[in-house]
Nucleic acid binder design. Structure first.
Lengths: 249, 249
DNA sequence: CGGCTTTCTGCGCTTTTATGCCGGAATTTA
DNA sequence: TAAATTCCGGCATAAAAGCGCAGAAAGCCG
């Protein structure tokens, strides 16, 4: 097993269970605890998890996101959300994933908007519920505590039955070569189903996450119709995506 | 259980109940009181709670201790929750409705409990998600904004597919003549399905709601196996229910 | 191809951390 | 004031971390 593979596995486990123990990982992958420890240390350095005595925890565990991400990113996400809102019309059926960018979108929805939002993301649902005029459909299944989203075959089957007008995806990593990618297997399955069930696919991402990729591919760029970032569409960073035929806002 | 996990749990408990006792925490998490004390000390150092003799208090405790409608009822619900917890065993599949009593039950679950909780109630789900060891299955469907619970045919169909070991119903009205009753059509449908899908049906209710009834019947008393109130089982108020063959705790 | 460097991994050692337990001091409660 | 509880410091122990090293594997280069 390759080092990257191992680390991807560890990351997946952390995202899934919120915690991992060095000892049990060492058993599962058949490497020494030293190796695991070194992996955890590296992943912690990259900010992908929190190393603690005896194992590691997922970031979401430590509640509030680290302040560096805070204000600046928050502002960018507001910009993205505002751009995204313009794509929504009354009466639409809208699928959304989870993630902080989607959350910002939920908060930005104008109160007079009448539409139906469908999601399995608990934080997003909570926001939608506060809105006076939108209908909320919750996708049920097992809850992944880390991502606070329902995952599983049942959720996927439900989404497959839908025919949404538009789908907003909070994106972890996008790259003109690898398409959109993620590090959680279950979430990837879900997003794939969402893409297939929607007339139009819109990716929301802060520029920071552009041109990066993660272990598991969700889809190629050609499945995506629209890309929204906080940048101006003229920004050279966005050129490759425009060339790929994506509508960049 | 990792140290951080434990501390996160303690913090959660403190924020929830505004106070914790070293002794009870030590029981719940199965570590020595010394360890708890050291944890409290650390958390106090980080300013996350206030350490006092015998336990700790939340910061908000310092502020206005708002004695809203709840306090008295709240206390009763805690008693009910504690009784209910004793019916839960590791590995069980548990269906729960919504309501504040169920919420209190969710908050009372001992951290080492491993079980699967199934519910369509958003507030309940949020509590379950905070628990370190339980699996959470969310029943999806359209969200009823005022009851904060998923309702509809799909939710009912999903529940029908389940075979739960036990079902906890927060009860709005119970009466030995009218059985359990409610005033929301959708919720009634849902609760009926829950009752049918469970081996054992447990009603949780504060004494105040006993011997009252509402427009729509959920079921007769004979469908109920156990009734939990804050009263002692010897209380004469409970006599009719015992006579009806219900196990009153 | 052969020798060199770099990376990755495991091993044995020491150091640090986490936790429980004990006895006496301090504090609360009856 | 006496009894019970809780706190605190010290100590013991087991687990985990850190460290240096060595061997294997992979990559590099002339």
């Amino acid at each position: 097993m390759l080092k990257k593979e191992r680390q991807a596995y560890i990351l997946h486990q952390v995202n899934l269970h919120n915690k991992v123990l060095s000892a049990s990982l060492s058993n599962e992958i058949n490497v020494s605890e030293d190796t695991i420890r070194r992996d955890l240390y590296e992943l912690a350095d990259e900010g992908k998890l929190i190393k603690v005595h005896g194992g590691a925890l997922s970031h979401s565990f430590n509640e509030v996101h680290f302040p560096t991400d805070g204000v600046y990113s928050q502002h960018n996400k507001k910009i993205i959300a505002q751009k995204a809102v313009h794509l929504i019309r009354n009466g639409m059926f809208i699928l959304t994933s989870g993630g902080t960018t989607i959350l910002e979108l939920a908060r930005t929805l104008p109160p007079q908007l009448r539409a139906t939002f469908i999601s399995g993301s608990i934080p997003a649902i909570l926001e939608y519920m506060n809105h006076p005029n939108i209908e909320v459909i919750l996708i049920g299944d097992k809850i992944s505590k880390n991502s606070k989203i329902t995952v599983g075959l049942d959720a996927i089957a439900r989404i497959r039955q839908m025919r949404a007008d538009i789908c907003f995806l909070g994106t972890n990593a996008i790259d003109y070569k690898h398409g959109i990618t993620d590090n959680d297997w279950d979430v990837v399955q879900l997003k794939r189903a969402m893409i297939e069930s929607s007339q139009k696919v819109v990716c929301l991402t802060i520029a920071e996450k552009m041109n990066s990729f993660q272990p598991i591919q969700i889809c190629e760029l050609n499945k995506i119709h629209t890309l929204i970032t906080e940048l101006s569409p003229e920004d050279p960073l966005l050129k490759p995506y425009i060339d790929a035929g994506i509508d960049v806002i």
